[in-house]
Amino acid sequence: MAEQVALSRTQVCGILREELFQGDAFHQSDTHIFIIMGASGDLAKKKIYPTIWWLFRDGLLPENTFIVGYARSRLTVADIRKQSEPFFKATPEEKLKLEDFFARNSYVAGQYDDAASYQRLNSHMNALHLGSQANRLFYLALPPTVYEAVTKNIHESCMSQIGWNRIIVEKPFGRDLQSSDRLSNHISSLFREDQIYRIDHYLGKEMVQNLMVLRFANRIFGPIWNRDNIACVILTFKEPFGTEGRGGYFDEFGIIRDVMQNHLLQMLCLVAMEKPASTNSDDVRDEKVKVLKCISEVQANNVVLGQYVGNPDGEGEATKGYLDDPTVPRGSTTATFAAVVLYVENERWDGVPFILRCGKALNERKAEVRLQFHDVAGDIFHQQCKRNELVIRVQPNEAVYTKMMTKKPGMFFNPEESELDLTYGNRYKNVKLPDAYERLILDVFCGSQMHFVRSDELREAWRIFTPLLHQIELEKPKPIPYIYGSRGPTEADELMKRVGFQYEGTYKWVNP
């Protein structure tokens, strides 16, 4: 592979701008107003304001973009700056750019259920340069409990009458099928589907988006991507930290609602779906819905739930269990780990287990898709061969690698495990991989909904998990304890083995 010439960040961002501006969906010269509902909250200060700053800094926003914060707290732009700027990672050389960014910011205080507050917000936006005809993007960085009041008031008082209007809704989209349907029906009564952007930030990850290209742009994968060759698929999300004093919020939802029903299920769809007619948003989402419709409700015998306990040999936070978090209700049975087996009941995947695993306070930070292939028929190497695996590593250190057998150097035919490896950090030294939120917010500006969740996708996802969630809430089974920093409950490994996964433990990928 030829040595790549190092590029400056300015040059890299210039390439990104060229890609972005050559499309006809990006209205570079139009006025846009980006409204952050819930501007005083954690999500706004840690993710949304920093993301908008990065896009502005790199010249990736339309030229005439204004940012308006809205929340109940009586704040000023200076207050917003004070709480969000520490997350910007701005350099001293960017000081003038930073001043320009905050000059485009404003803030309006108001209630979430008060019509007069929204009329005041609308008047404020109209007073901005060309504000009355601007395109408006409303980001709901809010708890779902206020979605209905907020969307109703936005629709009645704050819509642009000339430009387009788009609304970005953060997960969780309800707690179960019934609450999700209620919320979807409410929002759909106010906005068209092409105006609604239900954001799952995992769909903005580079390697998640790469799944489609790997599958449908490489001839070698087509013939082997089926039940005849693939023994099982494992989708993993692991965090090495616990709730760390923020367990009160987590306890309301648990690990299945927080990660599995959305992030992991979306990745499953991209692995299992048929080739779409095109890369058009609805063509892709149509195929994802077909996959979900082929999955039956989760069966309790295919589920393992766990909850982390303190590690007596650990240090600091590792010595504390979930129930030691003062914000967690006493005696909570909320799971911090889950392993679930699903089956896609169609011709391509009949009988292939899709194993979804996620948890907190585990032994490493990792998100990946792992396809394990069947054993080689007619073994001539005296059971020395391990199964081939194709691994798409989402985070950290984005990579695609194939675990395969090669001859060990020497005189004899002794096979050993090795890999074919594409590590993004080595291959793409001159490429700026956008943060997931950067990519998705740019998608909203461009009107691309491919990486957002459609209402029928959402409904099918909740259909699969709601009976299990209701059973857990009714019966309150005690989750299996696992030690902070471990791989999780051993019962999860036993479940995976029972459905056909072979864990060798003899080879570990190392970032080159």
Rank of each mutant, 00 (worst) to 15 (best):
R219P: 09
Y197P: 02
G247V: 07
D194E: 13
L60Y: 07
L140V: 10
S184W: 05
T151C: 13
F191D: 03
R9Q: 09
S84A: 12
K89Y: 08
R81P: 05
K97E: 08
R74D: 15
G163A: 11
I36W: 05
A115L: 14
Y70T: 11
L137Q: 06
N226V: 05
R74I: 14
K47S: 01
F102Q: 05
R136V: 09
V12F: 15
F237V: 13
M37T: 13
L140D: 04
D194F: 07
E170R: 02
F56W: 15
G14W: 13
S180K: 00
D176H: 05
D200V: 04
K45W: 05
V213G: 05
V146F: 05
M159A: 15
D194Y: 08
E206L: 06
S106K: 11
P143M: 01
G110L: 03
E244R: 08
I15K: 15
T65K: 04
R74S: 14
L183I: 13
Q11M: 10
I15H: 09
D114N: 12
Y112H: 00
K82H: 12
I234S: 12
D114V: 13
I199F: 06
M37N: 06
N64E: 10
V68H: 01
T243R: 00
A71C: 05
N105R: 03
V12H: 15
D79G: 09
P86I: 08
H186V: 11
L55S: 09
K95E: 14
I67A: 02
G163H: 10
A25W: 14
L140F: 11
Q178T: 13
W54S: 07
D194L: 06
F216P: 04
S132G: 15
E63N: 10
A217H: 01
D200E: 04
L60R: 08
I48C: 04
G242I: 03
E170V: 01
T145P: 08
M37I: 14
T236S: 12
K82T: 11
C158W: 06
Q161E: 14
A90P: 08
A39E: 01
G174V: 00
G163S: 11
R182L: 14
E63M: 13
G131R: 12
T236D: 08
R72V: 02
S84N: 08
F26H: 14
K45P: 00
G247T: 06
N218S: 00
D181G: 09
S179D: 07
G59E: 07
F173Q: 05
G204Y: 03
S117W: 10
Y139S: 07
I67T: 02
P92S: 13
D194Q: 13
L98S: 03
D24P: 02
I15S: 07
R219Y: 06
D58Y: 12
R219G: 12
L7V: 15
F216G: 00
S73G: 06
T151E: 00
G14I: 09
T10F: 15
Y197Q: 04
E156P: 08
A71Y: 00
P223Q: 10
H32A: 07
N229M: 06
I199P: 00
L214C: 07
K238G: 03
C232K: 02
K82R: 13
I162M: 13
T243H: 02
T31I: 09
I67G: 01
L142F: 02
M159F: 15
G23C: 10
A116F: 10
V150F: 00
K95T: 12
K238Q: 00
V68P: 03
F21R: 15
A109H: 15
I196S: 04
R9W: 15
I154F: 08
F102S: 01
S157M: 14
S184C: 11
I162L: 13
W225P: 02
P143L: 02
K47M: 04
S188Y: 05
L142R: 03
Q133M: 13
E63H: 14
L96Y: 14
I48W: 02
S180F: 05
Y249N: 00
E239S: 06
D58E: 12
N218K: 01
T91M: 13
F173D: 03
T51G: 05
N64K: 13
L137K: 00
Q161C: 13
L61V: 11
L211G: 00
S179V: 02
A6C: 15
C158Q: 07
I255G: 01
G248W: 01
S179T: 12
F250I: 03
Y118C: 06
P92N: 15
A2E: 10
D251V: 01
I154R: 01
R246E: 02
L96H: 14
T65V: 13
V146N: 05
A25T: 15
A78I: 08
R198Q: 01
G38R: 05
R104S: 06
S84R: 03
A217G: 15
F34R: 02
S180M: 01
Y202K: 04
G23S: 15
C232D: 00
H27V: 14
L20D: 10
L16S: 15
N135L: 05
E252Y: 09
I15G: 07
Q28H: 09
Q133K: 13
Q161H: 13
E19I: 15
A217K: 03
F34D: 04
I80Y: 05
G245V: 01
L16E: 15
N229C: 08
M159T: 13
D194I: 07
V77C: 12
L16I: 15
C158T: 14
